[in-house]
């Protein structure tokens, strides 16, 4: 499933989608950036409430397919511009991290 298809399936708001056709393979949830960096795998969707500029660097280094901001978190100023420049997809959902992860598992058949 691509990031755009996932976004539609979960009813996410597409804040920035420079790479809409990237494949999503699984999911990682976490807010401690070093922890995420040590654990998240390439192509996973990363669900977090962290909204500062460093999420773009972490997403780039881990090569996740997209960042999903849960609980309607709004990214800080400048985050979306950097995401565009670095080719990092950012979605937003009103759902909790758990709710979004459960929905992702459902629509990707990983339940």
């Amino acid at each position: 499933m691509t990031v755009r298809e996932l976004s539609k399936a979960l009813g996410c708001e597409e804040l920035k989608l420079p790479e809409p056709d990237r494949e999503v393979e699984g999911c990682y949830c976490g807010d401690l950036l070093s922890w995420v960096m040590g654990r998240a795998q390439a192509s996973q969707a990363w669900i977090t409430i962290m909204s500062n500029i460093n999420i773009v660097a972490v997403a780039t280094l881990c090569d996740v397919s997209c960042i999903i901001l849960s609980e309607n978190v709004m990214p800080d100023d400048g985050v979306l511009d950097v995401a565009e420049a670095k080719g990092v997809n950012i979605l937003r959902t009103a759902d909790t991290t758990f709710g979004a992860a459960a929905a992702l598992a459902r629509v990707t058949g990983n339940e």
Binding site: L32, L33, S34, W35, G38, M50, N52, N54
Partner: peptide, 16 residues
Amino acid sequence: SLGFGAGMGLPNMKRY
């Protein structure tokens, strides 16, 4: 509050 300072920096550097 920025998501750092979890005490994982040096351990991650060693691990990787």
